[in-house]
Nucleic acid binder design. Sequence first.
RNA 1: GGGCAGUUGGCUCAGUGGUAGAGCAUCUCGUUUACAUCGAGGAGGUCGUAGGUUCAAAUCCUACACUGCCCACCA
Length: 816
Amino acid sequence: MLSEIYNPGKTEKKIQKFWEKEKIYKFNPHSKKPIYSIDTPPPTVSGRMHLGHAFSYAQEDFIARYRRMKGEEVFYPFGTDDNGLATERLIEKLKKVKSQEMKRKDFIKLCLETLEEIKPEFIKDWKNLGMSCDFSLFYSTIDHRCQKISQQSFLELYKKNRVYQKEAPTIWCPLCQTAIAQAELKDKEFKSYFSDLIFKLDDPNFQAKDLIISTTRPELLPSCVAIFVHPRDERYKNLIGKEAIVPLFGQKVIILKDEKVETGKGTGIVMCCTFGDQTDIEWYLAHNLSLKISITKDGRMNEGAGKYQGLSLEEARKEILNDLKKVDLLVKQEKIKHTVNVHERCETPVEILNTKQWFIRYLDLKEEFLKIGREINWYPKHMKTRYENWIKGLRWDWCISRQRHFGIPFPIWYCGDCGQVILAREDQLPVDPLNDKSKEPCSFCESRSSIPEKDVLDTWATSSLTPQIAISLLPKTKIKLPMNLRPQAHDIIVNWLFYTVTRSYFQEKIKPWKEVMISGFVLDPYGEKMSKSKGNIVAPQDVMEKYGADCIRYWASGAGLGSDLRYSEKEIKEGKRLLTKIWNVAKFCLSHLKGYTLVDSEKIPSDFRTIDRWILSKLQKTIQKTSEAFEKYEYYQAREFILKFFWKDLADNYLELVKYRLYSDTRNKNDFSLEAAKFTLYICLLNILKFFSPILPHITEEIYQNFVSLFSKKSMTEMSKSIHLNDWPKLDKKFLDLEIEILGDKFIKILSAVRRYKAERKYSLKKEFSKVVIESRIQTLSTFFKDLEAAMNVNQVEFGRGEIEIDEEMKIRIYE
RNA sequence: GGGCAGUUGGCUCAGUGGUAGAGCAUCUCGUUUACAUCGAGGAGGUCGUAGGUUCAAAUCCUACACUGCCCACCA
């Protein structure tokens, strides 16, 4: 029997143990059921699960659980992302080491060992949340399997001529000292000065006229290689082709015309430096300008900057402005705020440097990627637009080399004699060229001497292969691309989602998944982003400790698909209230179902009262609407339908109306249709448990186990050992009856009217009335008279003349 | 500057052509053998603004305003 009060803390742990022991969520590769495969996002192992995780993982779990009950074999592996800066820092902190001072191989080994230690604790949060993944299907993005798959894919792309190495302008983070990709950029606002500088013309005839150029980056003056004006700008037309002298540094630069110049910006004259921004690169390439780099890889001025060499960029900026002032070449300074591209991880403004990097060539495939985007079903639909906008705005090939120490190594060497690239052999993967020797001589000059590539792969180059990695977890490739579902949040559409599409395209020219489900973000109660600096972070562990996982899941089900959700303890408490309600309803039902002999599911009691048929029809409607909502990933809608049925129709109305029958003396059970009442209760409770089970997996399991134990094994053929292995409620047309439903709703109106009458007069609901008269042409309402008498303590209900209007066709009159 | 989303009762949000909804908060009443972690009932909105389409608009169209997000610009 169920305890008096539900205790989530104790029960949830017990239930989770039960699931684990019974392997409820184990994927069965031999199943005959259709497979539903999920490309689960691997969380980064950098700390613990945060609220945003709890939010979006709960949402994908609703779907996984619904699909499982719908009769699909759910392939739902779990991985962790431990390849990258976040993990590197974590391990350094935990083990008090410096990765740079270690051999890469040893550091990776230390990572793998440390991760082995801390992983169970990390994953526990996901288990505590009630995730129904098959945790035995597990990967880590730095493990041998992933290294091998990642390197294999690189070799494949190399052979397909899709990767290339090139010395080119690259986005560079001077703090992390590595190249990064366009997708790793972020905006940040800085205070700065917009300074007007004087460039003298190198022409005796124009001696008097100075050029005034506005810039925010005077420290790039040594890199200035040209000056641009708009071809139709009348003010400067005569300057085109002349040369100007860069202040302080003295180099002569030519004045050119280009359509990209905005005449209204600054003075309409712009200097081109290698490189300040994207436009500089374009001009550099289009006008075949020379290259003058004056910045080092660690963000200082180099020898090209003359006396400023060694200064940081900021120091140099200050110094140069000072010196310009001294020689009267600084005309004006305006304080401004402007946004600058920074590295998303460290928020350092990025620079553009000419470096040698590996790229995946894909700018020529924009159309193909857009096409794949159109082949995928997006939930919600408008998220596709973000994907498309990103692709349309892409300007760089994917730079996949990182000058970092920790990561998956490139599986290549360079020939010591001729410099030719030597590829690793498939059978030696995963390989670390820093430790392993090439098994092949140089294919060009047959030299045996080789120099290892030191760079590592961008972490996205591995995590973009999660579908392939997930599939590889099964011994035989039973699952093929496209997988069914990629669930993820909208912030990583431009990297994780997009990159995964590109890899799947390169490999098989198909979409990686049939559908994607995009979740929103978690905000604090005031709609602000949660962040450590604001101190408004809520730890899901604390919430689970206090209220239980079902409550946090309830909260997570409260956001429409794709929309952000504010955290609010009120909603968590609402979840707690729901749990209590479910518990009490179950207690009530079970106490009356004790000793009930389950009839053959085909044999229905013959003594139904109209109210039974009414609630059973409502149930069918709810099955229909709820299933439709879940099919569209609209778990929030589904929850609303379930709540309405459970709380309003069932608990508030039906249970109140059926009580008198259940409590009746068994001697007159024929009068009270006891069989039908119990049958209805049985059906409703079982379906309520099924309805709530995707969202509230723990409490529904606990009640289900008690429910099942009421019945003898023999009558239980249709029931599984867990609520989560049950079939999702199926529409039973024989219980669907629109007329009965309308009739029942009419009756509920009468019931409410009697309740209102009592409330208005401040009577107790129990107060006895001698008679209620109903004026209506609907004769069949009489089938509810007995229910109304019992529920409202009325001695007699009959048809007659009414006085209180209920609707166009009904009036009632009450005799106290 | 471009794109996307949103603007509905005090608060948080459902509702995509047919008489405005829920939860919370508020007010009144009520311990009835599932539940006071409750139940019953009430009050509260001209659905951002302005036009238009329609017999009918919160819902469709156009423009605008405001908020949020993404992207671009960042000389």
